[in-house]
Write a protein that binds this DNA or RNA. Structure first.
Lengths: 247, 247
DNA sequence: CGTAGGTTTGATCCCAGTCAATTAGGGTGG
DNA sequence: CCACCCTAATTGACTGGGATCAAACCTACG
């Protein structure tokens, strides 16, 4: 805010994009909007609104009509599907910069629920489609992000189809750590914004198994459990090797 | 060739797209090129070449440099990753119209291997990127297809994370049947172009479990095994309900 | 404090995996 | 046409990793 006022005072010919919320958005270099020029960003911002949610609150539910797409600005989200008898599979965790809304144009096939206090950029699908038409750079970026998501989904399919409980948790910690490093976190340390149950439902395990493997890893010195849901990773290479199935 | 010559003879003002191989391509209404106009299709065809492969032959291997993207014209492909100790996970089966090459621009993260005699349309990545730039309809279609793939991947994640062996196989047969109906196959009947081992490695099971469940289903009248790897589905609704986890 | 989630630990069970043997199917050559 | 072979598929006996059931233990918050 101070910077904004200073800019206005010092430069009467200030461009609008300099004072737009996008200018200070921490998610911009990571989001769909990463490659947009100033005036393109403005087009896009006009079609967007900021939404927030508290932990446990859903952005939308499985089966709901699905008129929006989102880009996560701050916080974390879990996506999950339920089977009729209550079994739950978390299909992904989203963090700063992640896009939500590819596919499933009719009704939503999963629930999106905030893990932490959340802030996200929301667009009506129709508006977003018009943006894609008008801004080739946006669509290019979306294709690239879709490719990355597809790769991540394949990785998860391998994990769920063929890895042991220990390998799954090692992979999980390695990937989460890498993601947090990318977002500016410290190396050799991970924060877990989700519960053991969330981890279990993401990795196709039970909460008891997750807990037991954490204990094993702690005992063997692969991890240390710190307060505040922090985990220290004293030997990231060993953890990665284990997660990759290198016996 | 005969048709082509006839067309040339009868219509001196024939448009080039009428004689192009795309004109008779069975995969066109399903592929990335589905929404292209005649002259756009020509642009695209210029950058493409047709490749073929025999069953068991790989289009590329996991770890290889990955300079091409493909669109399946005819036949079936399996995609798989190997863990260091030989465990295999098939991450997908591709059929007529399916696109191959989103994501993984550097080295390929999986092997793509023909299940049947295969014909595919191949583009250099650089050429394809230029096409995406020049043909917005192509990129739109690619985004839509990427969304569909992502939904399918999520479905598979739920299957692998939370479904029983019986549910996995019921889902598999239901999905494969739906796909074959879409490609013009008969309802209530599925052709299995892959082996039991392929099915097992796709569903995160063993070959023995797959075989046992097939036997169970056969005994309970849910399926009938016919010659030539055909399976009759006398009660598709029951099979679908089982696959959806409706106990 | 007291209560309620969330987590850890223990005892036991079971679904699918492993190991092993048999059968069916598809192609080849005599 | 059939005997042979090789691979794929089936079936059986047994095992085991992770699930289930149950209880104790934190830890945050009123």
């Amino acid at each position: 805010m101070t910077a904004r006022n200073a800019a206005l005072a010092e430069a009467p010919d200030v461009r609008l994009e300099d004072v737009h919320p996008c200018a200070t958005c921490g998610a911009r270099p990571l989001g769909v909007c990463a490659d947009l020029k100033g005036h393109e960003l403005q087009n896009m911002a006009c079609a967007s609104e900021t939404v927030t949610a508290q932990p446990g609150q859903a952005l939308f539910h499985e089966g709901d009509p699905n008129p929006y797409v989102f880009n996560v600005v701050e916080g974390a989200v879990k996506l999950y599907r339920l089977l009729p008898d209550g079994r739950r599979q978390i299909t992904g965790f989203l963090f700063q910069g992640d896009f939500l809304g590819l596919g499933g144009r009719g009704t939503s096939s999963f629930t999106a629920e905030a893990l932490t206090p959340l802030s996200a950029c929301r667009f009506r699908r129709g508006d977003f489609d018009r943006l894609l038409d008008a801004l080739p750079a946006l669509e290019h970026r979306l294709v690239a992000m879709a490719g990355d998501e597809l790769m991540a989904a394949q990785e998860q399919i391998v994990l769920l189809g063929r890895k042991t409980a220990r390998e799954r948790i090692a992979s999980f910690l390695t990937r989460l750590s890498a993601r947090q490093v990318q977002l500016g976190g410290a190396e050799g340390r991970v924060h877990l914004p989700m519960t053991r149950l969330d981890i279990a439902d993401y990795l196709g395990l039970t909460i008891e198994t997750v807990s037991r493997v954490f204990t094993q890893f702690k005992t063997s010195g692969l991890i240390r459990l710190l307060p505040d849901n922090e985990v220290a990773l004293p030997d990231p290479e060993a953890l990665k090797a284990l997660g990759d199935g290198a016996a």
